[in-house]
Design a binder for these strands. Structure first.
Length: 270
DNA sequence: ACAGTAACCTGTTTGC
DNA sequence: TGCAAACAGGTTACTG
């Protein structure tokens, strides 16, 4: 997916079109994404007004007076604003109609999720164990240092785990580790506090800059308007295996860490 | 509690 | 050019 910057970009993009607006109808073309979509969703949302458009980790939260729609974009999901009666395009599985536009969910791989909860979304099983939001003070070097003591897993896997920090996926974990000069394979429990301080700074800086650029468009990610994000041009290691390191010019290495490809510089990252 | 692996599904890229 | 294999931004759930 869409990692945190892409989800945040999407949130900011769709909010002006739907905030305070009432849903006139919902079209569901499929019964399930990753999990079954409640068949009562259309009825639940009809004539409901969007009270807020929030985000927790990579989950978008559309809040209504009587509950919350939790949207996850999975690996290939995207949302866009279309004209009210524009025909559904390929892989657009869901459409929420408003008076002057419609919100479309497109997800070719169907790894996304659409969940309705009448209770507090933060206590939903999918959200309740998430680690801190990376752009808050709760993510600190001290926090990562403490949580990693005794852990043997690779630091990259550690920071990609949503229970450690929420919202950091393969792209931004790779970029942050390069920025902090840390070898992604290094055992999480054997990294000093000073280095975790540095890594924390790198994570925050990179996520902020990516949000500013509108996210990273690779294959499927498009912004709500249909425009791509521009962070791709700033990637230093992700997708650049074999190409020269932008700092030392040595060819970047590629390894597999917990079944995900990881690109790093064997000279700059130790 | 932790580590490792398979699973969900489809489109695009790669390599023969 | 054609076809099959490999690979892809995420996360849960299962095993040992």
């Amino acid at each position: 997916m869409p990692e945190l910057p892409e989800v945040e970009t999407t949130r900011r993009g769709i909010a002006p079109y739907i905030l305070g607006k009432e849903i006139s109808g919902v079209t569901l073309k499929i019964k399930k994404l990753r999990w079954p979509i409640p068949s009562t969703l259309s009825r639940t949302l009809k004539q409901a007004r969007v009270e807020s458009v929030g985000r927790r980790a990579k989950y978008l939260l559309l809040e209504f007076a009587h509950g919350t729609l939790i949207i996850h974009l999975g690996m290939s999901g995207s949302l866009r604003i279309a004209r009210p009666n524009q025909p559904l395009q390929a892989h657009e599985h869901v459409s929420f109609q408003f008076s002057d536009c419609s919100l479309r969910l497109r997800d070719p791989r169907k790894f996304g999720a659409l969940i309705w909860t009448a209770a507090d979304p933060q206590s939903h099983p999918l959200l309740k164990d998430l680690g801190p939001e990376p752009l808050t003070r709760q993510l600190s070097g001290q926090y990562l240092y403490q949580r990693s003591r005794g852990r043997k897993i690779a630091v990259k896997e550690f920071i990609m785990n949503s229970k450690t920090v929420s919202g950091v996926g393969n792209i931004y974990a790779s970029e942050a580790l390069f920025d902090a000069g840390i070898d992604p394979r290094r055992a999480a429990g054997r990294i000093s506090l000073a280095r975790y301080d540095r890594l924390t700074e790198s994570i925050k800086t990179i996520l902020r800059r990516a949000i500013k650029k509108g996210g990273t468009s690779l294959r499927d990610f498009i912004r709500e308007s249909g425009q791509p994000g521009y962070f791709k041009q700033e990637l230093k290691v992700y997708g650049r295996a074999g190409l020269p390191c932008r700092i030392c010019k040595k060819p970047l290495q590629s390894v597999c860490i917990s079944q995900r490809s990881s690109v790093y510089c064997s000279h700059c990252q130790t």
